[in-house]
Amino acid sequence: MKGIQQFRKNKQGFLLVDAMIGVLVVAIGLAALAALYTYGIGVMVSAARQEKAVQIASEKIELLKAADGHSEADIKLIAEHINSKENNKILLDNIEYSIRAAVGASLYDTNRNYPGDDTIYPVKVTITWSDPRPQVLTLQTYIHTNE
């Protein structure tokens, strides 16, 4: 019994050091969780802005697809309307999205073996915004023309 009492007597303060190390480990863990939470919120906000850009680009693609089956001139006219100063910027949640529509044979991917159907007309809509770095999103499709 005397040995156990001697052991306890020499280990006074051990629980205090143990508690301080435990508090330090918990504090580091909570700091890591706070950093992870902050990063997650940033990613969520960025994803929401990218989703809005996709919605804007999809709307403009659908506007261009309204000319499906019409002439190239009709498609170019719609693209010019999209690119006009009144229509090429949208402000959502204090973020300005810039819109650019491009149409024509110059959009064909030269690396692909395209069949060369003259009734297929390529269109591309590009959305740019800052989040806080510049971001770019591009949607491309083909529209059938009557020419």
Rank of each mutant, 00 (worst) to 15 (best):
A105H: 04
L107Q: 05
I41Y: 04
E147T: 04
Q140E: 14
A27N: 06
R49C: 04
M20Q: 05
V45Q: 13
E96W: 02
V125H: 09
D18V: 11
E86Q: 12
L15W: 01
I41N: 08
N10A: 11
S58A: 13
A53D: 01
G40E: 10
Q55C: 03
I56C: 07
V26A: 12
Y37T: 14
L36F: 15
P115Y: 00
A53Y: 00
V123T: 05
I28F: 14
E86Y: 04
K76N: 14
L107E: 04
Q50S: 14
I99M: 07
D18G: 13
I143M: 07
E147F: 05
S98H: 12
N88M: 08
I56F: 08
G116R: 02
V43P: 00
Q140W: 07
L91R: 05
S130L: 12
D68I: 07
I120W: 10
K52F: 01
G40W: 07
E59W: 05
K124H: 03
D93M: 10
Y108R: 09
T110C: 05
S106P: 04
G104H: 05
A101C: 08
P132E: 10
N113A: 15
A101I: 02
F7H: 05
K76C: 04
V54G: 03
A31T: 13
V123C: 11
D74L: 13
I41C: 03
G69H: 00
P115K: 05
A47W: 00
K11Y: 14
N10K: 13
L30G: 08
R100I: 08
G13N: 04
N94D: 15
I95G: 02
V25A: 15
I95Y: 02
I82W: 04
E62L: 12
A57Q: 07
L36N: 09
Y39G: 08
G13F: 07
G3V: 12
A47P: 00
V136T: 14
P134Y: 05
I78C: 04
E80N: 15
G69L: 01
Q6T: 13
L137F: 11
A101Y: 01
Q12H: 09
Y97A: 10
R8H: 06
Q50P: 02
M44N: 13
Y142H: 08
E86M: 09
V125A: 09
Y121E: 10
S106K: 10
V125D: 06
R112F: 02
A47M: 09
L24Q: 03
K89A: 12
V136W: 00
N87Y: 05
M1E: 11
A105V: 11
A66L: 14
